[in-house]
Computed example of a mutant assay.
Amino acid sequence: MSSPVIRRYAAFPDTSGAGERGQVGNPAGVVLAAGALDEAQMLAVAAGIGYSETAFVLHQESGRATLRYFSPLAEVPFCGHATIATAVALAQEQGPGDIVFDTPVGPIALRTRMDGEQITASFTSTTPQVRALADEVLGRLLGLLGLTAADLDPALPPRESFAGNWHPVVVLADAARFDAFTFAPGAVRALMDERNWTGTVTVLHRRGPDEFEARNLFPVGAITEDPATGSAAASTGAYLRDLGLLTPPARIVIHQGRHVGRPSLLLVDVPTDGGIVVSGTAVQIADGA
Protein backbone atom coordinates (compact mmCIF):
# COMPACT_ATOMS: atom_id res chain seq x y z
CA MET A 1 0.00 0.00 0.00
CA SER A 2 1.28 3.47 -0.86
CA SER A 3 2.38 5.73 1.94
CA PRO A 4 0.29 8.86 2.60
CA VAL A 5 1.51 11.99 0.82
CA ILE A 6 0.79 15.44 2.26
CA ARG A 7 0.24 18.42 0.00
CA ARG A 8 -0.73 21.99 0.77
CA TYR A 9 -2.83 24.28 -1.42
CA ALA A 10 -4.39 27.72 -1.32
CA ALA A 11 -7.94 27.36 -2.62
CA PHE A 12 -10.06 30.09 -4.23
CA PRO A 13 -7.17 32.60 -4.57
CA ASP A 14 -8.13 36.06 -5.77
CA THR A 15 -5.09 36.89 -7.87
CA SER A 16 -6.35 40.38 -8.71
CA GLY A 17 -4.83 41.71 -5.49
CA ALA A 18 -2.36 40.13 -3.07
CA GLY A 19 -3.03 40.06 0.64
CA GLU A 20 -0.59 40.28 3.50
CA ARG A 21 2.88 39.10 2.43
CA GLY A 22 1.44 38.29 -1.00
CA GLN A 23 -0.89 35.59 0.38
CA VAL A 24 -4.18 34.74 -1.29
CA GLY A 25 -6.83 32.05 -0.90
CA ASN A 26 -7.60 29.61 1.89
CA PRO A 27 -4.92 27.07 2.83
CA ALA A 28 -6.01 23.43 2.85
CA GLY A 29 -4.17 20.22 3.47
CA VAL A 30 -4.64 17.32 1.06
CA VAL A 31 -3.47 13.85 2.06
CA LEU A 32 -3.34 11.38 -0.81
CA ALA A 33 -3.29 7.59 -0.32
CA ALA A 34 -4.57 8.00 3.26
CA GLY A 35 -6.48 4.71 3.47
CA ALA A 36 -4.18 3.19 6.11
CA LEU A 37 -4.73 6.06 8.58
CA ASP A 38 -7.22 5.73 11.43
CA GLU A 39 -9.23 8.61 12.88
CA ALA A 40 -6.68 9.45 15.57
CA GLN A 41 -3.90 9.56 12.99
CA MET A 42 -5.91 11.74 10.61
CA LEU A 43 -6.70 14.14 13.42
CA ALA A 44 -3.01 14.27 14.38
CA VAL A 45 -1.99 14.96 10.77
CA ALA A 46 -4.61 17.72 10.47
CA ALA A 47 -3.39 19.28 13.72
CA GLY A 48 0.20 19.09 12.51
CA ILE A 49 -0.65 20.79 9.21
CA GLY A 50 -2.52 23.43 11.21
CA TYR A 51 -4.91 24.65 8.51
CA SER A 52 -8.63 25.06 9.14
CA GLU A 53 -9.28 21.78 7.31
CA THR A 54 -7.41 18.91 5.70
CA ALA A 55 -8.97 16.45 3.25
CA PHE A 56 -7.95 12.78 3.33
CA VAL A 57 -8.32 10.65 0.19
CA LEU A 58 -9.01 7.21 1.64
CA HIS A 59 -9.76 5.29 -1.52
CA GLN A 60 -9.65 6.03 -5.21
CA GLU A 61 -10.75 4.23 -8.35
CA SER A 62 -11.68 5.31 -11.87
CA GLY A 63 -13.93 8.36 -11.60
CA ARG A 64 -14.50 8.09 -7.85
CA ALA A 65 -12.72 8.85 -4.55
CA THR A 66 -13.63 8.58 -0.87
CA LEU A 67 -12.84 11.62 1.30
CA ARG A 68 -12.98 12.58 4.97
CA TYR A 69 -12.26 16.03 6.39
CA PHE A 70 -10.61 17.03 9.67
CA SER A 71 -9.98 20.37 11.35
CA PRO A 72 -7.14 20.51 13.90
CA LEU A 73 -9.73 19.68 16.59
CA ALA A 74 -12.33 17.33 15.10
CA GLU A 75 -13.76 15.70 12.01
CA VAL A 76 -16.05 17.94 9.95
CA PRO A 77 -18.75 16.60 7.59
CA PHE A 78 -17.72 18.62 4.54
CA CYS A 79 -15.25 21.31 3.52
CA GLY A 80 -15.63 23.16 0.24
CA HIS A 81 -12.17 24.70 -0.08
CA ALA A 82 -10.44 21.40 0.76
CA THR A 83 -12.68 19.70 -1.82
CA ILE A 84 -11.56 22.16 -4.49
CA ALA A 85 -7.92 21.68 -3.44
CA THR A 86 -8.26 17.89 -3.62
CA ALA A 87 -9.87 18.04 -7.04
CA VAL A 88 -6.99 20.18 -8.33
CA ALA A 89 -4.43 17.83 -6.74
CA LEU A 90 -5.98 14.79 -8.43
CA ALA A 91 -6.27 16.63 -11.76
CA GLN A 92 -2.58 17.44 -11.58
CA GLU A 93 -1.86 13.73 -11.13
CA GLN A 94 -4.33 12.28 -13.63
CA GLY A 95 -5.50 15.12 -15.86
CA PRO A 96 -8.74 17.11 -15.67
CA GLY A 97 -12.18 15.57 -16.00
CA ASP A 98 -15.19 14.48 -13.96
CA ILE A 99 -15.00 12.65 -10.64
CA VAL A 100 -17.34 11.91 -7.75
CA PHE A 101 -16.18 12.35 -4.15
CA ASP A 102 -17.94 10.12 -1.63
CA THR A 103 -18.05 12.23 1.55
CA PRO A 104 -19.76 12.02 4.95
CA VAL A 105 -22.59 14.21 3.56
CA GLY A 106 -23.05 12.07 0.45
CA PRO A 107 -21.65 12.00 -3.09
CA ILE A 108 -20.28 15.31 -4.42
CA ALA A 109 -19.85 15.67 -8.19
CA LEU A 110 -16.61 17.40 -9.26
CA ARG A 111 -15.49 18.73 -12.62
CA THR A 112 -11.99 19.99 -13.36
CA ARG A 113 -10.86 21.75 -16.51
CA MET A 114 -7.87 23.62 -17.82
CA ASP A 115 -8.38 27.39 -17.74
CA GLY A 116 -5.32 28.68 -19.57
CA GLU A 117 -2.45 27.40 -17.43
CA GLN A 118 -4.63 26.91 -14.35
CA ILE A 119 -6.95 24.12 -13.30
CA THR A 120 -10.42 25.27 -12.32
CA ALA A 121 -12.53 22.94 -10.19
CA SER A 122 -16.28 22.99 -9.64
CA PHE A 123 -18.28 20.98 -7.13
CA THR A 124 -22.03 20.48 -6.98
CA SER A 125 -23.24 20.51 -3.40
CA THR A 126 -25.56 18.03 -1.80
CA THR A 127 -29.26 18.97 -1.92
CA PRO A 128 -29.60 22.17 0.12
CA GLN A 129 -31.97 22.95 2.97
CA VAL A 130 -32.96 26.37 4.32
CA ARG A 131 -34.85 27.00 7.54
CA ALA A 132 -35.82 29.86 9.83
CA LEU A 133 -33.32 31.19 12.36
CA ALA A 134 -35.06 31.54 15.70
CA ASP A 135 -35.28 35.11 16.99
CA GLU A 136 -33.74 34.15 20.34
CA VAL A 137 -30.75 32.48 18.66
CA LEU A 138 -30.36 35.39 16.23
CA GLY A 139 -30.36 37.84 19.14
CA ARG A 140 -27.65 35.88 20.93
CA LEU A 141 -25.54 35.68 17.77
CA LEU A 142 -25.84 39.38 16.99
CA GLY A 143 -24.99 40.22 20.60
CA LEU A 144 -21.78 38.20 20.35
CA LEU A 145 -20.84 40.25 17.26
CA GLY A 146 -21.70 43.58 18.86
CA LEU A 147 -24.58 44.02 16.41
CA THR A 148 -28.34 44.51 16.64
CA ALA A 149 -31.29 43.79 14.39
CA ALA A 150 -31.05 47.38 13.13
CA ASP A 151 -27.74 46.45 11.42
CA LEU A 152 -29.40 43.82 9.21
CA ASP A 153 -30.30 44.31 5.57
CA PRO A 154 -34.12 44.28 5.62
CA ALA A 155 -34.26 42.80 2.11
CA LEU A 156 -32.16 39.78 3.15
CA PRO A 157 -33.60 38.17 6.31
CA PRO A 158 -31.48 35.82 8.46
CA ARG A 159 -31.77 32.08 7.90
CA GLU A 160 -29.95 28.82 8.57
CA SER A 161 -28.77 27.24 5.33
CA PHE A 162 -27.29 23.82 4.57
CA ALA A 163 -25.37 22.64 1.51
CA GLY A 164 -23.02 20.24 3.26
CA ASN A 165 -22.74 22.04 6.62
CA TRP A 166 -25.26 24.15 8.52
CA HIS A 167 -24.47 27.88 8.46
CA PRO A 168 -26.38 30.77 9.98
CA VAL A 169 -26.56 33.47 7.28
CA VAL A 170 -26.92 37.12 8.27
CA VAL A 171 -26.59 40.07 5.90
CA LEU A 172 -25.53 43.52 7.11
CA ALA A 173 -26.79 46.65 5.41
CA ASP A 174 -23.82 48.93 6.10
CA ALA A 175 -20.32 48.26 4.74
CA ALA A 176 -18.65 50.05 7.65
CA ARG A 177 -20.48 47.88 10.22
CA PHE A 178 -19.56 44.81 8.19
CA ASP A 179 -15.89 45.76 8.25
CA ALA A 180 -15.78 46.81 11.90
CA PHE A 181 -17.60 44.14 13.90
CA THR A 182 -15.50 42.00 16.24
CA PHE A 183 -16.21 38.95 18.35
CA ALA A 184 -14.85 36.75 21.12
CA PRO A 185 -13.87 33.48 19.40
CA GLY A 186 -14.59 31.26 22.41
CA ALA A 187 -18.12 32.57 22.87
CA VAL A 188 -18.93 32.21 19.18
CA ARG A 189 -17.48 28.68 19.16
CA ALA A 190 -19.67 27.72 22.11
CA LEU A 191 -22.81 28.91 20.33
CA MET A 192 -21.78 27.12 17.14
CA ASP A 193 -21.28 23.86 19.04
CA GLU A 194 -24.60 24.27 20.83
CA ARG A 195 -26.48 24.87 17.56
CA ASN A 196 -24.56 22.20 15.58
CA TRP A 197 -23.33 24.79 13.10
CA THR A 198 -20.58 22.55 11.74
CA GLY A 199 -19.56 25.07 9.08
CA THR A 200 -19.04 28.76 9.72
CA VAL A 201 -21.06 31.74 10.86
CA THR A 202 -21.68 33.46 7.53
CA VAL A 203 -21.92 37.26 7.61
CA LEU A 204 -22.49 38.97 4.27
CA HIS A 205 -22.67 42.44 2.78
CA ARG A 206 -24.26 42.96 -0.62
CA ARG A 207 -21.98 44.83 -3.03
CA GLY A 208 -24.34 44.65 -5.98
CA PRO A 209 -27.21 42.61 -7.47
CA ASP A 210 -25.02 39.53 -8.03
CA GLU A 211 -22.01 40.29 -5.84
CA PHE A 212 -21.39 39.81 -2.12
CA GLU A 213 -18.55 40.10 0.33
CA ALA A 214 -18.40 37.48 3.08
CA ARG A 215 -16.83 37.11 6.48
CA ASN A 216 -17.02 33.52 7.66
CA LEU A 217 -16.35 33.10 11.35
CA PHE A 218 -14.64 29.80 12.18
CA PRO A 219 -13.01 29.85 15.63
CA VAL A 220 -10.79 26.76 15.82
CA GLY A 221 -7.41 26.89 17.50
CA ALA A 222 -5.51 29.98 16.36
CA ILE A 223 -7.96 30.52 13.48
CA THR A 224 -10.89 32.92 13.87
CA GLU A 225 -12.06 33.72 10.32
CA ASP A 226 -11.94 31.54 7.23
CA PRO A 227 -10.38 33.17 4.13
CA ALA A 228 -12.64 31.24 1.70
CA THR A 229 -15.51 28.88 2.50
CA GLY A 230 -16.93 26.74 -0.29
CA SER A 231 -19.72 25.20 1.79
CA ALA A 232 -20.81 28.67 2.93
CA ALA A 233 -20.78 29.88 -0.68
CA ALA A 234 -23.05 26.98 -1.64
CA SER A 235 -25.28 27.70 1.36
CA THR A 236 -25.46 31.36 0.30
CA GLY A 237 -26.64 30.35 -3.17
CA ALA A 238 -29.26 28.07 -1.62
CA TYR A 239 -30.36 30.86 0.74
CA LEU A 240 -30.83 33.35 -2.09
CA ARG A 241 -32.76 30.83 -4.19
CA ASP A 242 -35.01 29.81 -1.30
CA LEU A 243 -35.95 33.43 -0.59
CA GLY A 244 -36.60 34.16 -4.26
CA LEU A 245 -33.87 36.81 -4.30
CA LEU A 246 -32.46 35.69 -7.65
CA THR A 247 -33.87 34.15 -10.81
CA PRO A 248 -32.20 30.81 -11.58
CA PRO A 249 -30.13 29.89 -13.40
CA ALA A 250 -27.96 32.63 -11.96
CA ARG A 251 -24.34 33.27 -10.99
CA ILE A 252 -23.17 35.23 -7.98
CA VAL A 253 -19.65 36.29 -7.09
CA ILE A 254 -18.44 36.12 -3.48
CA HIS A 255 -15.37 37.98 -2.26
CA GLN A 256 -13.87 36.79 1.00
CA GLY A 257 -10.64 36.88 2.98
CA ARG A 258 -9.87 40.60 2.85
CA HIS A 259 -10.31 40.88 6.63
CA VAL A 260 -7.69 38.20 7.29
CA GLY A 261 -5.22 39.33 4.61
CA ARG A 262 -5.94 36.48 2.16
CA PRO A 263 -8.22 37.73 -0.64
CA SER A 264 -10.35 34.97 -2.16
CA LEU A 265 -12.87 34.67 -4.96
CA LEU A 266 -15.69 32.12 -5.21
CA LEU A 267 -18.05 31.72 -8.17
CA VAL A 268 -21.48 30.32 -7.34
CA ASP A 269 -23.90 29.01 -9.97
CA VAL A 270 -27.48 28.55 -8.79
CA PRO A 271 -29.66 26.21 -10.89
CA THR A 272 -33.44 26.08 -10.70
CA ASP A 273 -33.29 23.15 -8.27
CA GLY A 274 -30.87 20.66 -6.74
CA GLY A 275 -27.29 21.25 -5.64
CA ILE A 276 -25.42 24.54 -5.89
CA VAL A 277 -22.25 24.68 -8.02
CA VAL A 278 -19.17 26.38 -6.55
CA SER A 279 -16.08 27.01 -8.68
CA GLY A 280 -12.54 28.19 -8.08
CA THR A 281 -8.88 27.42 -8.51
CA ALA A 282 -6.16 26.24 -6.15
CA VAL A 283 -2.41 26.82 -6.15
CA GLN A 284 0.09 24.52 -4.49
CA ILE A 285 1.89 25.96 -1.49
CA ALA A 286 4.29 23.17 -0.61
CA ASP A 287 4.78 19.45 -0.93
CA GLY A 288 5.99 16.78 1.44
CA ALA A 289 5.60 13.18 2.44
Rank of each mutant, 00 (worst) to 15 (best):
P4M: 09
P4N: 08
V5M: 08
R7M: 13
A10P: 08
A10L: 12
P13F: 01
D14V: 01
T15Q: 06
T15P: 00
T15R: 09
T15D: 05
R21Y: 13
G22K: 05
G22Q: 06
Q23S: 15
V24P: 00
N26H: 13
A28M: 05
G29S: 11
G29A: 10
V31L: 08
A36D: 14
D38L: 04
Q41N: 07
L43V: 00
V45R: 10
G48E: 14
G48P: 00
Y51V: 01
Y51L: 02
V57M: 00
H59V: 00
G63D: 03
R64P: 00
L67I: 00
F70E: 09
S71E: 02
S71L: 04
E75S: 06
E75A: 11
C79V: 00
C79L: 01
H81Y: 10
T83P: 03
A85N: 03
A89S: 13
Q92L: 14
E93R: 09
G97D: 03
G97K: 08
V100Q: 11
V100F: 07
F101K: 05
T103H: 01
P104F: 08
I108T: 07
L110P: 06
T112R: 05
D115W: 00
D115G: 03
I119T: 12
F123K: 01
T126R: 08
D135P: 07
D135M: 06
E136I: 04
G139I: 01
R140N: 03
L141S: 06
L142A: 03
L144W: 13
L145P: 10
G146E: 08
L147E: 05
L147F: 04
A150L: 10
D151S: 13
D153Y: 05
R159C: 10
R159K: 13
F162I: 07
F162L: 09
F162V: 06
A163F: 09
G164D: 04
W166L: 15
H167V: 08
P168G: 07
P168S: 05
V169L: 14
V169G: 09
V170F: 09
V170M: 12
D174V: 14
D174C: 14
D174A: 15
A176M: 08
A176E: 12
D179K: 11
A180H: 11
F183R: 12
V188S: 14
R189H: 15
A190V: 10
L191F: 12
L191E: 11
L191Y: 12
M192G: 15
E194A: 15
V203W: 13
H205N: 15
G208C: 14
D210F: 11
F212G: 10
N216A: 14
L217G: 14
L217Y: 07
V220H: 02
A222I: 07
I223P: 05
I223W: 14
T224N: 09
S231H: 00
R241K: 10
L243F: 02
P248F: 10
P249M: 12
V253D: 07
H255A: 06
H259V: 06
V260K: 07
G261N: 04
P263C: 02
L266K: 04
G274C: 10
I276G: 06
V277K: 10
V277C: 11
V278L: 07
S279L: 01
G280R: 01
A286Q: 04
D287V: 14
